[in-house]
Simulated assay, not measured.
Amino acid sequence: MTAGELVRRAVASELGTWRSLARWVRRRPDVPPGAEPFPYASAVTPVLWTFIVLSAVEIPLVDWLLPWPSLRVALLVVGAYGLLWMIGLLAAMRVHPHTVDAEGLRLRSGASVDVRVAWEDVAAARVRRRSVEGSRTVVVAEEGERRAVSVAVAGSTQVDVELRTPLVLPLARAGGQPVGELRLAADDPAALVRRLRAGIAAAAATPEGDAR
């Protein structure tokens, strides 16, 4: 990936965070009509709120302790930006849940991951709790000739989605290579799996001639 692509991705992620904060304030989650939301942020929410509260306490404390006006102003700006950014990060996870609709699954992680998988590409779904090494949200695992992509929250996933055939997905970490399985986090993995299985069954029962 070139430096220009990295910059574009960073800018897009930053703008997405601020747009998410605006949506959260207005209580307008990004859930299209007819789609069923499946949140995934509960495991990380207490941690983020802890950092948010600590940052909110730190800002006036630092301002009170430092005697240099110019440094106080600079740290006030940095602290306020950091505080709003953390709130925006939490907002992004809250207003962009996974969704399931008549077309298939839409897997998301904040404003940075947005992957759509059509019903005809989904073979199976199951509850399976896994730990994911490292701190990255998107992790690619090589298992023999099979590649799986984990979109983790707090270092774990709870749902496996098996694909009928490997697909190239719009994920930078996947490197443009096809993957055969998606692993994602969900607050209620059993409910998400039930809904996915219902969608798979409905798609299988639909004659090809009646396809949308």
Results as ranks from 00 to 15, higher is better:
residue 2 T to M: 00
residue 4 G to H: 10
residue 5 E to I: 08
residue 5 E to V: 08
residue 7 V to G: 00
residue 7 V to L: 15
residue 9 R to N: 10
residue 9 R to L: 14
residue 10 A to K: 07
residue 12 A to N: 02
residue 13 S to V: 07
residue 14 E to N: 08
residue 17 T to E: 06
residue 17 T to A: 14
residue 22 A to L: 13
residue 23 R to H: 12
residue 25 V to K: 09
residue 27 R to V: 11
residue 28 R to Q: 14
residue 29 P to R: 02
residue 33 P to K: 14
residue 34 G to C: 05
residue 34 G to N: 07
residue 35 A to I: 12
residue 38 F to R: 08
residue 39 P to I: 04
residue 39 P to Y: 09
residue 40 Y to G: 00
residue 42 S to K: 12
residue 46 P to G: 08
residue 48 L to D: 04
residue 51 F to C: 04
residue 51 F to A: 08
residue 52 I to T: 13
residue 59 I to R: 04
residue 62 V to G: 01
residue 62 V to Y: 04
residue 67 P to V: 14
residue 69 P to T: 13
residue 74 A to N: 00
residue 74 A to K: 10
residue 74 A to D: 01
residue 74 A to W: 15
residue 75 L to M: 14
residue 78 V to K: 11
residue 79 G to V: 10
residue 79 G to K: 03
residue 80 A to T: 15
residue 83 L to H: 12
residue 87 I to R: 05
residue 87 I to S: 03
residue 88 G to V: 06
residue 88 G to K: 07
residue 92 A to L: 06
residue 94 R to M: 12
residue 95 V to L: 05
residue 99 T to H: 10
residue 103 E to S: 10
residue 106 R to E: 05
residue 111 A to N: 13
residue 113 V to A: 06
residue 115 V to S: 03
residue 118 A to Y: 03
residue 123 A to D: 12
residue 125 A to W: 11
residue 127 V to P: 01
residue 127 V to G: 05
residue 130 R to Q: 13
residue 130 R to M: 12
residue 131 S to I: 12
residue 133 E to G: 14
residue 133 E to R: 15
residue 136 R to H: 15
residue 136 R to I: 05
residue 137 T to Y: 15
residue 139 V to N: 06
residue 140 V to C: 05
residue 141 A to Y: 13
residue 142 E to R: 13
residue 143 E to V: 07
residue 143 E to C: 00
residue 145 E to Q: 03
residue 146 R to A: 09
residue 149 V to H: 06
residue 149 V to D: 03
residue 151 V to S: 10
residue 151 V to G: 07
residue 153 V to H: 04
residue 155 G to N: 01
residue 159 V to C: 07
residue 160 D to H: 15
residue 163 L to T: 11
residue 165 T to N: 02
residue 166 P to C: 04
residue 167 L to F: 04
residue 170 P to A: 06
residue 171 L to Q: 10
residue 173 R to T: 14
residue 176 G to M: 08
residue 181 E to K: 10
residue 182 L to G: 03
residue 183 R to Y: 09
residue 190 A to C: 03
residue 190 A to N: 04
residue 191 A to W: 05
residue 194 R to P: 01
residue 198 A to W: 00
residue 199 G to D: 01
residue 201 A to D: 13
residue 201 A to T: 12
residue 203 A to L: 00
residue 208 E to S: 08
residue 208 E to H: 10
